[in-house]
Simulated assay, not measured.
Amino acid sequence: MGVKTIVVRARPGNRSQGLLNVAGTIFPCALGPGGITARKREGDGGTPLGRLRIVSGYFRNDHFVTARQTRVPMQPIAATLGWCEVPDDRNYNRPVRIPYCASHETMHRLDNLYDACLVLDWNLKPRLRGRGSAIFFHLARPGFTPTQGCVAVAAATMRRLLPRLSTSTVVKVVR
């Protein structure tokens, strides 16, 4: 059965960690160091408050092959895949081919955070300069240390959820 809604809340007493609720099952997750914010800005470290639909995803074919087992359109991450994070650039908050002239995030990471990475529809259409880019649902670091504003879960949690997710799944970030 597919998952329609994933509810994310900050963990009491720790705004950079959260609790992810999927049909009554709770999973730990990491959030941005700024916690959940209604006024998301580029570089603020906040996780945006709101309903974020899963749009698409990326995966490391050499590390997370089970990412293909989902109803989300997934693309393998090439070493040349980046994500532009410069508000004044014409490709702001979009994938780019690297090397790229403006500041960008490298998707082919050594720390494995993006071995399975789902793109959430934050600031995609329309893109507003400075409202924040690259809000992903991806893999967490050990100890669920803060993200840059994304929602991150353990690899085992991602493996469990991916087969149940689709582009109609909404990640609802609440206070």
Rank of each mutant, 00 (worst) to 15 (best):
T25S: 07
T25H: 11
C29T: 05
P33T: 06
G34S: 06
A38R: 09
R41V: 03
E42V: 02
G43Y: 00
G45E: 12
G45M: 02
G46V: 02
G46H: 01
G46S: 01
T47R: 08
L49S: 07
R51S: 13
L52F: 09
R53Y: 06
G57W: 01
Y58G: 08
Y58F: 14
F59Y: 15
V65R: 14
V65M: 14
T66R: 13
T66C: 02
R68V: 12
R68A: 08
Q69K: 02
V72I: 10
P73Q: 00
Q75H: 09
A78W: 11
A79E: 15
A79F: 11
T80R: 12
E85Q: 14
V86S: 14
P87T: 05
P87A: 08
P87I: 02
D88F: 12
D89K: 06
N91L: 14
N91F: 14
N91A: 14
R94N: 08
R94V: 10
Y100T: 06
S103V: 08
H104K: 13
E105N: 07
R109T: 06
R109I: 07
D111M: 00
D111F: 02
N112P: 09
Y114S: 10
A116R: 09
A116G: 15
A116F: 12
W122P: 04
P126Y: 06
L128S: 11
G130S: 08
G130R: 02
R131C: 06
G132F: 10
A134P: 07
F137W: 05
L139G: 15
F144W: 10
P146C: 01
P146F: 03
T147K: 01
Q148G: 12
A152Y: 07
V153M: 13
A156E: 15
T157K: 10
T157L: 08
M158L: 12
R159P: 07
R159C: 11
R160F: 14
R160N: 13
R164S: 13
R164W: 02
L165H: 09
S166Q: 09
S168I: 03
T169G: 00
V170N: 10
V171Y: 05
